[in-house]
Nucleic acid binder design. Sequence first.
DNA 1: CCCATTGGATAGTGCCGGTATCTAATTGGT
DNA 2: ACCAATTAGATACCGGCACTATCCAATGGG
Lengths: 209, 209
Amino acid sequence: MQISELSDRSGLTVQTIKFYIREGLLPKGSAVSATRSEYDLRHLERLRLISALREVGDLPVSAIQQIIAAIEDDRVSLHDLFATTQHAIGPHVAAPHDPHWRAAREDVDALVGELGWDVGDRAPARDLLAHTFVALRRLGFPITLRDLRPYVKAATEVADHEIGRVAAGTPRARTVHSLLVSTVLYEQVLTALHRLAQENASSRRFGKP
Amino acid sequence: MQISELSDRSGLTVQTIKFYIREGLLPKGSAVSATRSEYDLRHLERLRLISALREVGDLPVSAIQQIIAAIEDDRVSLHDLFATTQHAIGPHVAAPHDPHWRAAREDVDALVGELGWDVGDRAPARDLLAHTFVALRRLGFPITLRDLRPYVKAATEVADHEIGRVAAGTPRARTVHSLLVSTVLYEQVLTALHRLAQENASSRRFGKP
DNA sequence: CCCATTGGATAGTGCCGGTATCTAATTGGT
DNA sequence: ACCAATTAGATACCGGCACTATCCAATGGG
């Protein structure tokens, strides 16, 4: 198939596809002449993955670059791909030597240790959680481990479900997509349902029907 | 206090504070002369709220504008403030007449109806969820109601906990902050813990220690 | 009294994710 | 064989966003 068909079937403009090729998100088509290249279904699948990560996961192009690089390297294990994804989606807050931030970060590390979770020291999600702690304290709503219990429970159940569901024994490309879908896309599913559940709870508590 | 002290205590530059005043996120100080205005603790609190919504919640300034406007209008009920917040944080995807999108959106509406949730027809979270459905289907990972069960359970438990915790009977300003914190900031708490739990689950399933 | 600070206004910056345009080569239809 | 349409590849450009820098005239504290 040529680029115009790829454009039609992916819903992206030819310009955008060229842009993704330039950025290394999508491999070039195989050149057939100086002005034609042939694209195949793998290109289409890749574009669908990129669209999903961009539009639904709201990932920046630079994060997708890193994920794609890990996908394309066969030596990268599934768990390494997972870690790469976590690192790519950030956040990249370099919170330096503020004592409040330090304390929050230590609280997070203590929590992870207490739960016995095997999580990289540099996992950005640790920073994200610490960041919320700092903000909550500054706003006068200090957070305690007790407050976190329902979140830990909910997060654990959902995460176990997700990782358990990742297709195994299928071609690597499929497993890889499955893993990305389970993490990036289902994070949005959880967020959306969380918001809907909140609105419902808010209506029951504060609404006036 | 004058603006330089406000800057020191909030951690924001004077320029940024002026910018927020211009954008209507922060009221002007009370003018004391042509070149001095007086700021008080409410300004500081407001700046902390803005920082939290920007840095932790990653909300755009335009969303914070809408939220602030609702906060400052005493006629807005808590539940209306909640709805305003939901609308402000988006997403603002105007997905038009694509049949796939329509079908996904109908699935979402059916789910909400089945659960008996009281959620506005135009709640953006409906669109967010529909968006994930479309992407998942395009990637060949169709989603079923069965898949959603753990998410619904987790979201419900957490949301009930959050809304139940909103301080009532306190001054409106405090209750309002409490509500925003419970929604915007704790969403990040859930996301962070979800990511950590996923990494742990991934390590147990795919790691090789 | 004088240099730093302030309010208020206007202009500029850096990043991001695309778009637009251009050229030269090729191709499909008639 | 001709010509309009398409393509690869390169370069330039654009609009939105969240600040950031500068400038000016009026203060005001040491």
